[in-house]
Measured scan of single mutants.
Amino acid sequence: ENVVSAPMPGKVLRVLVRVGDRVRVGQGLLVLEAMKMENEIPSPRDGVVKRILVKEGEIVDTGQPLIELG
C-alpha cells in the first residue's frame, strides 16, 4: 500500500512529515480534523515519504489520497 488515503472527510490541520522522511508503521503522518476532533493519521507501513498530496488547511473527502510512500 503506497498511498495513504483519508479515512473520513475533514480538514488537514498539520502535516507531520516531509518528503524524504523515513517513517515507521503507526507513526503519525498528518492530523485531520473531523467533527471538531483531531485525528492523527498513521503510516500503514515502514517506508519513505515520496510525495505529500495535500496542504495544511485543505478540505479532503473520504478516500482522497494524502501521502505517497516509497
Rank of each mutant, 00 (worst) to 15 (best):
N39E: 05
D61L: 13
N2F: 02
R45E: 14
D46T: 10
E33T: 10
R14T: 06
A6T: 10
E38S: 13
P9R: 13
L30V: 09
P65S: 04
V17L: 06
P42H: 10
N2V: 03
D46S: 04
S43N: 05
G10T: 15
E58F: 04
R22C: 01
L53H: 14
V31C: 01
T62I: 13
V15G: 10
G26H: 10
K50H: 12
G10I: 12
S43C: 00
V12E: 00
L32F: 13
L30I: 12
G26N: 06
T62S: 04
R45K: 15
V54Y: 06
D21Q: 04
V49R: 00
L32Y: 12
T62V: 05
E68A: 00
V3M: 11
M37N: 06
G26P: 09
G20P: 02
P65A: 06
E58M: 05
L13Q: 09
L16K: 05
M8C: 01
V31M: 04
K55H: 05
R14E: 13
V60P: 03
E38G: 10
I59L: 14
D61E: 13
I52A: 04
K36E: 08
S5R: 01
P44W: 15
D21P: 02
V12M: 05
L66R: 00
K55E: 14
E1S: 00
L29S: 07
V12Q: 02
R14N: 11
G70E: 06
I52D: 10
M37E: 08
P9G: 03
K36T: 12
Q64A: 12
E40Y: 13
V19C: 01
V12S: 13
L66A: 03
L53P: 11
G47D: 15
R45T: 15
V15F: 08
V60T: 10
I59F: 10
G57T: 07
V23M: 11
L53S: 14
R14A: 08
K55R: 02
V17A: 13
I41H: 09
V19N: 08
R14Y: 10
I41R: 10
S43E: 00
E33S: 08
V23D: 00
E1Q: 00
V23N: 12
G70T: 06
V49I: 13
V31N: 11
P65H: 08
G47W: 03
G57A: 07
G10M: 15
L13D: 06
V60G: 07
V12G: 01
R18S: 12
I41Y: 14
K11P: 11
V15L: 13
Q27V: 02
L29D: 00
V25T: 15
E1V: 00
V15R: 02
I41E: 08
V3L: 04
L69D: 15
G20W: 01
V15W: 04
L29T: 13
G26T: 09
R45N: 15
K50R: 07
L32R: 02
E56C: 01
L30W: 06
P42L: 09
R22V: 06
M8K: 11
V60Y: 14
R18H: 14
P9K: 05
T62E: 07
I41W: 10
R24W: 03
I67Q: 12
L69N: 04
V54H: 07
R22D: 02
R51K: 03
A34Y: 07
Q64K: 05
K11H: 08
T62K: 09
V31Q: 03
V48L: 09
M37Q: 05
R22M: 14
T62C: 01
G20T: 15
A6V: 06
V12C: 01
V60E: 02
K55F: 13
R24S: 14
G10L: 14
V12T: 05
